[in-house]
Design a protein around this nucleic acid. Structure first.
Lengths: 177, 177
DNA sequence: TGAGGATACATCGGTAACGAGGTATTGCTC
DNA sequence: GAGCAATACCTCGTTACCGATGTATCCTCA
């Protein structure tokens, strides 16, 4: 997820590590903060894999900066990860939002809708958090107010996202036609 | 998060590993599957820490089962983790839902509302995923349909959860008074 | 009778992430 | 002029988790 965010932000413009960190913190930081000790090793991994390059330039304020630029491989790797997300990227909202944040980099509307449809299929699969045998329980069937809360909130999220997904898929297909 | 779920499910009733896994999969599995190779070591950790005990009994169908029972320490450790969740448990929806799923084990309504209030404070803090300088951007200000989607869905979730939180806190305080 | 699926538990190697700490500079406030 | 926040990068030890793989039993269905 972190690597995807790095690739995604650098796809637009080269950035140095510190600024990249600010962007990532804005995107996912309020929910899941990114430790510096996670970011810098991740940058090194991507550099080692040939997906980005560093250039040292004098720091504007303090220490010298390492300006990070995606290579051609890096650019195609981002598109590959966006076009073929692993299933966890589809089901886990934190990861899914990261995919969405950069999905515009997948230039082809058909490829974009294909990804949206995977999320749609996931959300349309009936699932609960609590079961009686195999039957998913509805909020109304639970006594526990906190568990009811989980189902209430999850349902609202799912409804909102389904509506958005369907509208967006429709409009993307309108463009394609 | 996994440890919390193990403690939470065992708080109600002893279970063997396989059944525990089924429960956890129902709770969070559709979003974030739990690998067996994560669950069994986690059980061992908790056993080593003296939070649960194992008793081998013949398997109903196949191999012998290890029935897991919380110790007194395990029971108080669960209550402690529920009463004083780390900040990530409050901000990350996956973790938060796990806290909620077991919050009823915190017998004291005042302790329960204290936890709900932490989530309330987090949700009431204005935050976006995208900024112009320091100013959070609203869905309407974005051109990118996918980023608009993130904000649209997040807003719907937040509204639903705020409503639920406020109603639940009110009703818990009604009980206390 | 034999293949597959469910039950039931476990190990192993690898990796992503965390927290704590370190280094160094600039610029602002007290 | 001392202290602190912000900028800018890094290492180290530990943990949590993953995928692949292994072992064994029982039941069902072809």
């Amino acid at each position: 997820m972190l690597e995807l965010a790095i690739l995604g932000f650098l796809y637009d413009t080269p950035l140095h590590g510190y600024k990249l960190r600010k962007r990532i913190t804005a995107l996912t930081g309020h929910v899941r903060p990114v430790a510096e000790s996670t970011l810098y090793p991740a940058i090194k991994r991507l550099e080692k894999a040939g997906l980005l390059e560093r250039a040292t330039e004098p720091g504007a304020v303090a220490a010298p900066r390492h300006v990070l630029t995606l290579t051609g491989d890096g650019r195609s790797e981002l598109r590959r990860r966006l076009a073929e997300p692993v299933q966890r990227d589809i089901t886990d909202e934190n990861r899914w939002f990261t995919v969405l944040a950069f999905l515009r980099h997948l230039a082809d509307p058909a490829a974009q809708t294909a990804v949206l449809r995977r999320r749609l299929a996931f959300l349309e699969t009936p699932a609960s958090f609590f079961y009686e045998g195999d039957r998913p329980l509805r909020a109304e069937e639970l006594d526990d107010p906190f568990r009811r809360g989980i189902l209430t909130v999850a349902r609202a999220t799912t409804q909102a996202e389904l509506a958005w997904l369907r509208a967006t898929i429709d409009s993307l297909e309108g463009v394609a036609r």
